[in-house]
Design a binder for these strands. Structure first.
Lengths: 228, 228
DNA sequence: CTTTTGTATTCTGTATGCAGCATTTTTTGT
DNA sequence: ACAAAAAATGCTGCATACAGAATACAAAAG
């Protein structure tokens, strides 16, 4: 069963006045996940009737969600043909990574200035946990913690616009990263870069953190470029 | 009369099969303009019934447009209260400018590497035209050309993601800039920076162009910070 | 006079219906 | 048998209709 309605139910059994979480958000998140995880491949038309039936909602909220995702850049709107899952060329990915790199370098500098000691400790905790997952070869959890660390560093920069745009680019790239599973030696290199990142952050070494973050993304590109 | 339908009519009197431009795009652009130009002030609820009647469209496409703008960041979606024009705090603006600055610095470096001579010549032409408008004290045309030059430099970087995000930030900031009318001496300073920009671009001097672009935006912030 | 509660209105959220465009299949003419 | 035209199908785009939530207002109780 893939119906959205099940996701609407409140997790806790509380009895207060039921404030239904807006269907819109649920739909957007659901569709976004379907695109990222490859359930909807690039080039696929988002068939309103069929998709709506599958998810258990009518066409109207579905259309609104599709328009929303179009503005996010995951979906392309073709006149009188509706929404189509956007296809990213290797150059598109490279372009996104170039921008992401610049933004993370900025985030690194700001984070060194503005982060609280507590925040840095949290990042260290995430990192240590990630290392555990790495040694256990738990790819999925490693991947999630990896993302969480990058997001944490961006949050420490305390710049809402930066947070927004970074999240947007991460989302667009998620699908790509989902595919690009690197081999053991490249994985090790990635972990090494993360070690550097954390120690630079703890030392509040702007230049070094910024440099590592940039190098990290550049290497990430090298690691996945063949699989696109 | 403010009806959208009038905007749908084709400007030329051609007789071929009428391919109606999608109402969605028209509506999005119209609403965006209304927000930027202050017809819809920050905090205003986007009243679907009333607004739809005013524009001569039904609620359905209007809602879709509102959702789209929400994803763009100009509108906030409040559950069971619909769309509200987003209000930017001074810190929000500062945050956006910080990001924009980093992106323009990147664009400047890339442009020096990748731009064709023809493109640089075009930018110079825009600049010269802008100077003419400046001397004529034609604020509106000056402003438009100013924007066009920045956009042109970003385009020269030939990075689609950079172009997208830059455009998004420019849109969000447009409303602010619309207000921030600086005095004569500050205006002159801005023009001076533009002179530097163009000559750095013509010399393909990465470091200098990047530096000027950054300084330019930083100064722009100083020029408008009081009027927010 | 203030506060609270019940009711009415208004607006959002969702569903459905209809018209037009695109594409595919069928039919007709050579 | 092949090509071109015409019909049929399916989907999107927009409008309308209905249900539920929030707010505003009024009346009653303290």
């Amino acid at each position: 069963m893939d119906e959205i309605s099940s996701l609407e139910r409140r997790p806790d059994g509380s009895t207060g006045p039921i404030r239904r979480t807006a269907l819109h958000d649920t739909l957007v998140n659901h569709l976004r996940d379907m695109i990222i995880e490859g359930d909807l491949e690039p080039g696929t038309r988002l068939h309103e009737g069929q998709l709506g039936e599958q998810l258990g909602v009518s066409r109207t909220p579905l259309r609104e969600a599709i328009k929303y995702l179009a503005s996010e850049g995951l979906v392309e709107l073709v006149p009188s043909r509706g929404g189509v899952v956007k296809r990213f060329s290797p150059k598109d990915v490279h372009d996104m990574l170039t921008v992401l790199r610049t933004l993370e370098e900025l985030a690194g500098r700001l984070a060194c200035e503005l982060a609280s000691d507590a925040e840095i400790a949290e990042a260290r905790a995430l990192h240590d946990e990630m290392i555990v997952r790495y040694k256990a070869a738990d790819r999925l959890k490693y991947y999630k913690l990896n993302q969480a660390i990058h997001t944490a560093i961006v949050r420490m920069a305390q710049n809402s616009s930066l947070i927004d745009i970074h999240a947007m680019l991460q989302t667009r790239l998620k699908r790509i990263r989902f595919i690009g599973h690197e081999g053991p030696e490249k994985w090790a290199a990635s972990v090494g870069e993360h070690e550097e990142m954390i120690s630079a952050l703890e030392a509040r070494d702007k230049a070094r953190l910024s440099e590592v973050l940039g190098r990290h993304l550049f290497n990430a590109w090298d690691r996945v470029r063949d699989s696109i």
